[in-house]
Design a protein around this nucleic acid. Structure first.
Length: 346
DNA sequence: TTAAATGATTTTCG
DNA sequence: CGAAAATCATTTAA
């Protein structure tokens, strides 16, 4: 047991001054005391240890092999393994449990919803689909923005995927490397498969925490993109003249009950090249604003009433009677269908 | 530059 | 949930 300090010493000596210093050291330390033979032994052993560093890898390998072939090896190794098994079992309890990690799930869900991690291309997010629908007919105006948005999004997606793949690959490489190493070592060192498994899971955890950072920053990027582009919905554009005409026509011709059914909304949306929810918005705004100041809308009401009347006349009589339809607009003295302000809108 | 108009969003209510 | 009401943010007309 008393070799220990000397071993340390010699190691330190080796580290600093190299082999040449060793013999003197030995002699000095083992100077003038009891069993000379024993000291000699120790000296030999140390000598051997020191020379190992000079040996080639082949020699080391051979030595290892020799060790492996030692007749006591299997028995000792089994004992070691047994002991190890017992101690490892006691350690085991603390670890293991793997929480699904709410944060990671949140990030995953968001990436999926944003169409970053989901299936390639296709419709992308629901928002994008809705936007596409909105700009489907006459949407040359905002489709530029959307293509820009989508380009940026796919850029993010591409970066995300390549990075993810890189991580995946690195993780696999590292894992196999470690596993090979452990397997190799398990011949000279008791390593249970469970231990390897644990090591692998540790590695995976590490890598997935790195992946989480990637996901986090991707989410942030998408959020920024959203706030810059999608939130520009708020940067609205007025509906075109034709669309407002159609909407107003419907509104004033159903003034007693200006609540278009779902089907009616869909039809209006199609006619106006806007979405159903935009139709709903429009009617919501119109109803409240009409109710709030009926006087202000009187003229408009008259105008549209006249218009629909004329249209009806046109359709029914097929233009055979009078040629007046060409002047519907001034709307001054047309038989205004006296709007009872408080019909249905409370 | 300002006020009105207007589409969208948020909050409240049945 | 859908509509009313309040509010926001932008566009347009003055």
């Amino acid at each position: 047991m008393d070799e220990q300090p000397r071993l340390m010493h010699s190691h330190a000596g080796v580290g600093m001054t190299g082999h040449p210093g060793l013999p003197q050291h030995m002699q000095e330390g083992a100077g003038g005391a009891d069993g000379d033979g024993r000291k000699q032994d120790i000296g030999d052993i140390l000598q051997q240890i020191m020379t190992i560093t000079d040996q080639s890898l082949d020699e080391a390998q051979a030595r290892k092999h020799a060790l492996n072939c030692h007749r006591m090896k299997p028995a000792l190794f089994n004992v070691l393994c047994e002991i190890k098994e017992k101690t490892v079992l006691s350690i085991r309890g603390a670890q293991e449990e793997e929480p699904p990690d709410a944060q990671l799930m949140r990030l995953d869900n968001m990436l999926l919803a944003e169409g970053v991690s989901g299936p390639e291309k296709g419709g992308g997010s629901a928002a994008a689909a809705a936007a596409a629908a909105a700009s489907g007919g006459a949407g040359a105006d905002n489709s530029a923005e959307h293509s820009d948005y989508r380009a940026k999004l796919s850029q993010i997606r591409q970066i995300y995927h390549t990075e993810l793949e890189k991580y995946e690959q690195a993780c696999n490489e590292f894992t196999t490397h470690v596993m090979n190493l452990l397997r190799e070592q398990s011949r000279t060192r008791p390593i249970s498969p469970k231990e390897i498994e644990r090591m692998v899971s540790i590695i995976h955890r590490k890598f997935s925490s790195i992946q989480m950072q990637l996901k986090q920053s991707t989410c942030e990027a998408v959020m920024i993109l959203r706030s810059r582009f999608l939130d520009a919905r708020r940067k609205r554009r007025n509906f075109n003249k034709q669309a407002t005409e159609i909407l107003n026509e419907y509104f004033y011709s159903h003034l007693s009950n200006p609540y278009p059914s779902e089907e009616a909304k869909e039809e209006l949306a199609k006619k106006c090249s806007i979405t159903v929810s935009q139709v709903s918005n429009w009617f919501g705004n119109k109803r409240i604003r009409y109710k709030k100041n009926i006087g202000k809308f009187q003229e408009e009401a008259n105008m549209y009433a006249a218009k629909t009347a004329v249209n009806a006349a046109n359709v029914s009589s097929h233009g055979s009677q009078a040629n007046s339809p060409s002047t519907p607009n001034s709307a001054g003295g047309y038989p205004s269908p006296c709007y009872q302000p408080d019909r249905r809108i409370q």
